[in-house]
Design a protein around this nucleic acid. Structure first.
Lengths: 323, 323
DNA sequence: CTGAAAGCGCTAACAC
DNA sequence: GTGTTAGCGCTTTCAG
């Protein structure tokens, strides 16, 4: 390629990495030749000298969890505009796989987006020496993060339920490793107390339909008329469990989920839920990562994104107020 | 690292890429040192000399389409076991983005999995010079492919409907660029004819809920009592459209989809659908790609996977047989 | 079995 | 503005 247009390789190199340093004439000639030959600089080789791979890693617990695809998609599209590619990997909810993935990624990417990591703080602290991180959906001391304000979401959800007249609430908590579950619980308890309602925490539960399905008896046993589930999948499972037992939603019991996944709109009744700004989160995370690796100007090191309650059909006033 | 254990770099190299060529003692020493220092060979640099990146690209039209995540997940897990990483990219249904993605991937991966590509045969033929392909969900002359037998799926679906007593069928076709849509239509028409039923093809429609929703009036106008939709998303949209118009499913009209995505189980009534072997497809595609790039033994160059009808609640005998 | 040397495709610092 | 040189981290002959 270098000799095909009768110049030195470094001139070709400059044409692509610093076009302004090369004579416009030569430049167009090189570009034309590149076009003809279908030449494109080899990014891997480039990475060897520059130290920038122009790749970023994106690690999620489960691609098949409908919460993630919109986030992945947004991150990816956003990265592409900045000439970055995204490696997506799925840990299958296994912290060991997560660690292994981070290590194998470390030399191939400029940084890693860790979405809802299951790894311990200690492990993360150790691994951050290998590669820059941005954590999504969980605060880790000293690490840039993009958070979604689930605590406020929980407040909104509890507020909605109490203002409807519910006084006996239940919270279906998530997996014990989940940071958000704790935040939700704390905020929900406070909001319930302020409204003079009682809130029973039930869990931990698997963040799946199955998890919600299995929790149905406990919800009934707790005598709750309004329930908050850790995520939509769990809420949907609960809807099924309640239906099986002949409990009407929202007639007898109101249900609120988190995430606003598409499935919630499909469920009957349509699920009331706390919508998460996943698209914004994906974009912001990419921006923050690129800032950190010096490809962009620096911004805040922790971003918190708002959540919003979406009221649909699974919530209503309780049939009879608790005695 | 080389000098840390007092040997030459080439010995370190051999320890990782050809362990049997090195003295067991030295090997363990090197390995121990690597462990201590957290050293791992730089895959990008290795790729420079070997020509093998140990990465594969996976290109889909839309990550957020629930059909793909299980496939991606399976491909990824399968590749990982073979020491391969997967770059996932989303084209946003845009052929130009698809082409660009392939080109940027080409030097960074050993091969590309093209899932339901929107690119023209010509373009694919041109691009295959840049990088090995395996195409999923569409036959391309001269290229290895993994196909899912949608034609047979269509036959099963039509058979199910006709044996239930339906004689007036409608088919909601997919986007005009979709290969599968043509296959489905052909097979459905043949099967309908054989069973003495009439089948009206309606379309093209967007492969989304919206597409199905908009098609509801046409379905009714066609007087069909049994309808086949290009995919589950479209079928679900149709369910909604029908409900809005007070048409009972399956009382008045029966609906069958394709894909067996999770949403189908959530819809009310639960959707009867043709299940696609996405997990097997993801694995097979990875195997075929690795075979092609010489990392594994050669197998067949086109694999066809079976589909199976899953009967749920959206199909039943027609209320009254057509006159 | 191990060391030496060349080179993968590119960029960066320095001359000219 | 462009050529020269060195070197990124690794593998791979080829000697020894």
């Amino acid at each position: 390629m270098a000799r095909a247009c009768g110049v030195h390789v470094s001139t070709v190199s400059r044409t692509f990495s610093a076009p302004h340093l090369v004579n416009p004439e030569t430049r167009t000639r090189v570009l034309a030749e590149a076009e003809r030959l279908g030449y494109r600089p080899n990014r891997a080789a480039r990475a060897l000298t520059t130290g920038r791979t122009h790749n970023i890693g994106l690690i999620v617990a489960d691609i098949a969890n409908p919460f993630f695809p919109p986030l992945i998609k947004a991150a990816q599209a956003h990265a592409r505009l900045r000439d970055y590619h995204v490696f997506v990997a799925d840990t299958d909810e296994d912290p060991r796989v997560e660690e292994e993935l981070i290590q194998t990624f470390s030399k191939q990417v400029d940084g890693v987006l860790l979405c809802s990591p299951r790894l311990s703080n200690r492990a993360i602290d150790r691994l951050r020496r290998d590669v820059p991180f941005v954590v999504v959906n969980r605060p880790v001391r000293g690490l840039p993060a993009v958070l979604m304000d689930v605590a406020d979401g929980a407040r909104q959800a509890v507020g909605h339920l109490t203002s409807l007249g519910h006084r006996e609430l239940a919270l279906l908590t998530g997996p014990s490793g989940s940071w958000n579950s704790g935040l939700i619980q704390e905020a929900a308890e406070r909001a319930a107390a302020e409204a003079g309602a009682r809130l029973t925490a039930l869990g931990p539960n698997a963040p799946t339909e199955q998890g919600g399905l299995l929790a149905a008896p406990e919800v009934l046993a707790a005598g709750a008329t309004g329930v908050l589930a850790y995520n939509d999948l769990m809420a949907i499972g609960l809807l099924e469990g309640l239906e099986e037992r002949g409990v009407a939603v929202p007639g007898d019991v109101s249900v609120v989920g988190f995430d606003d996944i598409m499935q919630g709109r499909l469920a009957r009744p349509k699920l009331t839920t706390v919508a998460m700004p996943t698209v914004a989160a994906g974009r912001t995370a990419v921006d923050m990562l690129l800032q950190q690796v010096g490809a962009e100007e620096a911004g805040p090191s922790v971003t918190s994104l708002q959540t919003t309650l979406v009221v649909r059909e699974s919530t209503a006033a309780p049939a009879r107020l608790p005695r």
